[in-house]
């Protein structure tokens, strides 16, 4: 079987299209590359959706935590503590079984036990907590002078937030948020190992990598391929985020811009 046929058969295997049966023996390098790459679609989907939705909740949480009103501050603090203080792996298991028991009682929760929705919800809450903490830190480190200048110009309330506080918060928090985005994508590899079933063996990149490793008993081929894909993905994320970061910093001289530093934080 040529590599073109493999691509035709397996390129979208992770979404349920193409050949149903996974290869069982005589694995070729091409099959490794195509199937693991096919699984990567899931990782990109999980990461992108969770990041986009989580961003809004993260801003809310950051503002809530910085609020002077206790009834706003405590829920935000509790939320951030809960999701940052427990392992994502356990959160996923817990959420899956909660959805499973809800599904028994209400038909509405039918699709929540599937990874495409259930896992995205957990990832969304998780990234909202982590990035909420980042933006809270950024909010606290806004220079006093900026706020005073806004006051002097007569800006207050929503206008001051939109014109001064929010852009500065984004600018200061952006390097840390880039790291958060990278590790969110890495975290997505845990989803199919934590309760959420991979229906018809349609899983993510790590799912297929461990499938190959189990079948061939040779970890030295699939995992480096997975690593290769993720390094590419990481580079893409850094590229996109530094474009946005550059736009956020466009009014500043080069040296004073907050620089992105790659800081690995491993599992959450």
């Amino acid at each position: 079987m040529s590599c073109y046929e493999t691509i035709a058969d397996y390129a979208f295997r992770s979404l349920g299209f193409g050949e149903r049966l996974l290869p069982r023996s005589d694995f070729t390098l091409c099959q490794h590359f195509v199937l693991i790459g096919s699984g990567l679609i899931w990782n990109i989907y999980f990461g992108t959706v969770a990041l986009l939705t989580g961003f809004i909740l993260a801003i809310t949480m950051a503002l809530g935590k910085a609020s002077t009103q206790p009834w706003l501050r405590w829920p935000a603090e509790g939320f951030i503590l809960l999701f940052r203080g427990t392992p994502f792996f356990i959160q996923c298991f817990f959420a899956y079984f909660v959805f499973l028991s809800l599904k028994g009682s209400y038909a509405f929760f039918d699709s929540f036990t599937a990874a495409w929705l259930g896992a995205v919800i957990v990832l969304f809450l998780n990234t909202a907590a982590y990035s909420g903490e980042i933006f809270y830190g950024a909010l606290r480190s806004i220079p006093k002078g900026d706020i005073e200048a806004a006051d002097a110009y007569g800006l207050h309330g929503w206008k001051r937030f939109r014109r001064i506080t929010f852009p500065t918060m984004m600018r200061l928090g952006w390097p840390a948020y880039t790291n958060e985005a990278i590790f969110l994508f890495h975290t997505t590899t845990l989803v199919f190992f934590s309760g959420f079933p991979a229906r018809q063996q349609a899983g993510d990149a790590l799912y297929y990598a461990s499938y190959f490793a189990d079948k061939t008993f040779n970890p030295f081929v699939p995992y480096p391929i997975l690593a290769f894909y993720f390094i590419l993905l990481t580079l893409c994320i850094i590229g996109v985020y530094s474009l946005i970061g550059r736009r956020l910093n466009r009014h500043l001289p080069q040296e004073t811009r907050a620089k992105f530093r790659f800081r690995p934080q491993l599992i959450r």
Binding site: H186, T187, T189, L190, F193, L206, A209, S210, A213, F217, P219, F220, Y223, L226, A227, F230, I231, T234, F262, P264, L266, I267
Partner: peptide, 17 residues
């Protein structure tokens, strides 16, 4: 070596390797 790659992959890799 731990940078840029999901850590779960390292765990699954090292334990067999």
């Amino acid at each position: 070596v731990v940078r840029g790659v999901p850590d779960v992959a390292f765990f699954l890799f090292f334990v067999i390797a």
